[in-house]
C-alpha cells in the first residue's frame, strides 16, 4: 500500500524573512495603537475630565428687580458661569463635583411648589413661579466658601428669605427654620444610595433666617438657576459653609427646637449646626485657615464669617464659636 506523503515545502513557499519582520512590525504597531486607544478610552471613562454643558435660559425681564447691582468687593472677581455650573456639590445627583452638571441636565423643575408651615399664623403652599412674581429677584454678588476648602464669587438672583417668612407670619414660639430638599429617587438618582441620610435637611436659627443677607435664589448671572446649582429655588447664606445652603427646596418649617440637619447627623464632630466660616476652627481632618478661590492657583486666607463679620457677627455675640462651630 502506498501512502501518499505531502511534498516537502518548496523553496518558493517559504515566506521571505523581510515579510515576516514587516508583518511582526505591523502587528506590534497595531497592538501599541489599539491598546493606547483603549487606555485613553478607559481614562476618559473612569477619571472623566469635566465636560461643559449648555447655558440656561435668561430670566424673564419682569421677574428681575430694577435695583442697581451691588458693586463687588475689591479683590473679588466674579467666577465664570462655566466654573459655577460645572463644579458642584449636590450629592442627590452625584458625589463627583465634575459630574453633577451632566446628571442635572435631565432634571425637570416645573411644576414646583414650596410648602411653608409649622409655627406660623398662615401656613401655605406656594407655586415657585408665583413666588418669583411676588418677590422680584435682586442681584446679590456673594462669596461662597465650601467646607472642602475652595471658594467662588457668585452673582445670584434672589429675594430675602425674610420676605417669604413674613408672608406666613411666624409665631413668637418659632425659634428655628428647617429647609428640606426634594426627595424623589426617580429624579435624583443618587438618593438610591444611602451616602447621606435623605432627604437633605438644613436649618437656621430664626434670626439667621431673617437676616437681610440670607436669600432664596432662583437665578444666576441673570439666568434661570440651572439644576446643578439647586433649581428652582435654593437657600444662600453667604457667611456659612456652602453645605448649609440647601438646594431644590420643597418645604420650609418653622420650629421651636433645633432641626436635625443632614451633615450634622452624618458626622456631628465634623459639621456643626452653625457651621459659620471660621479659619480658627479646623475641620477635624483638614485645616480651614486657607482656601483656593476657583480660578486661582495659590491659596488665600479664609476670613471669619467669610468676610461678612460686620453684618452678622452680632448674631453670635457672647457665643463661644469654637464650641458652637
Amino acid at each position: 500500500m502506498v501512502i501518499k506523503r505531502p511534498a516537502d515545502i518548496k523553496a518558493r513557499e517559504i515566506t521571505d524573512k523581510k515579510l515576516v519582520l514587516s508583518r511582526r512590525t505591523f502587528l506590534r504597531g497595531a497592538a501599541v495603537a489599539g491598546s493606547v486607544v483603549a487606555t485613553a478610552g478607559l481614562y476618559n471613562g473612569l477619571l472623566a475630565p469635566p465636560r461643559k454643558v449648555r447655558p440656561s435660559e435668561p430670566l424673564p425681564r419682569e421677574l428681575v428687580a430694577h435695583t442697581p447691582a451691588a458693586a463687588p468687593t475689591p479683590g473679588d472677581v466674579k467666577n465664570k458661569y462655566e466654573e459655577i455650573t460645572n463644579y458642584n456639590n449636590f450629592y442627590e445627583l452625584s458625589t463627583d463635583k465634575y459630574e453633577v452638571a451632566e446628571v442635572a441636565a435631565k432634571f425637570v423643575t416645573r411644576p414646583w411648589t414650596v410648602a411653608v408651615f409649622g409655627l406660623c399664623q398662615r401656613p401655605r403652599v406656594f407655586d415657585v413661579g408665583d413666588l418669583f412674581r411676588r418677590f422680584p429677584l435682586e442681584e446679590r454678588v456673594y462669596r461662597l466658601r465650601c467646607v472642602e476648602g475652595w471658594s467662588m464669587v457668585i452673582p445670584w438672583n434672589g429675594f430675602p428669605l425674610r420676605k417669604l417668612l413674613d408672608e406666613v407670619q411666624p409665631l413668637a414660639s418659632a425659634k428655628f427654620v428647617s429647609l428640606k430638599t426634594l426627595f424623589d429617587p426617580a429624579r435624583m438618582p443618587n438618593q438610591r444610595d444611602e451616602v447621606l441620610p435623605w432627604p437633605y435637611v438644613e436649618g437656621l436659627r430664626l434670626d439667621e433666617a431673617m437676616h437681610p443677607l440670607t436669600i432664596l435664589a432662583g437665578g444666576l448671572y441673570g439666568e434661570t438657576l440651572p439644576p446643578q446649582n439647586g433649581a428652582p429655588l435654593r437657600l444662600v447664606v453667604p457667611w456659612k459653609y456652602g453645605f448649609k445652603s440647601g438646594k431644590s427646596i420643597v418645604a420650609i418649617e418653622l420650629t421651636d427646637s433645633q432641626p436635625r440637619t443632614t451633615w450634622n447627623l452624618y458626622s456631628p464632630d465634623e459639621y456643626g449646626f452653625y457651621s459659620n466660616v471660621n479659619p480658627d476652627v479646623p475641620h477635624p481632618r483638614w485645616s480651614q485657615a486657607t482656601e483656593r478661590r476657583i480660578g486661582e492657583l495659590g491659596k488665600r486666607p479664609t476670613r471669619l464669617f467669610n468676610g461678612y463679620g460686620a453684618e452678622v457677627a452680632h448674631l453670635y455675640a457672647g457665643m463661644d464659636l469654637k464650641k458652637h462651630f
Binding site: 475630565p49 469635566p50 466654573e83
Partner: peptide, 16 residues
C-alpha cells in the same frame, strides 16, 4: 480643560 479646580483634579488623577 481640567475644569474649575485643575489642581484638585490633577491631584486626584495622579493619586489614583
Amino acid at each position: 480643560n481640567l475644569g474649575a479646580n485643575p489642581v484638585e483634579f490633577i491631584l486626584r488623577a495622579t493619586g489614583t
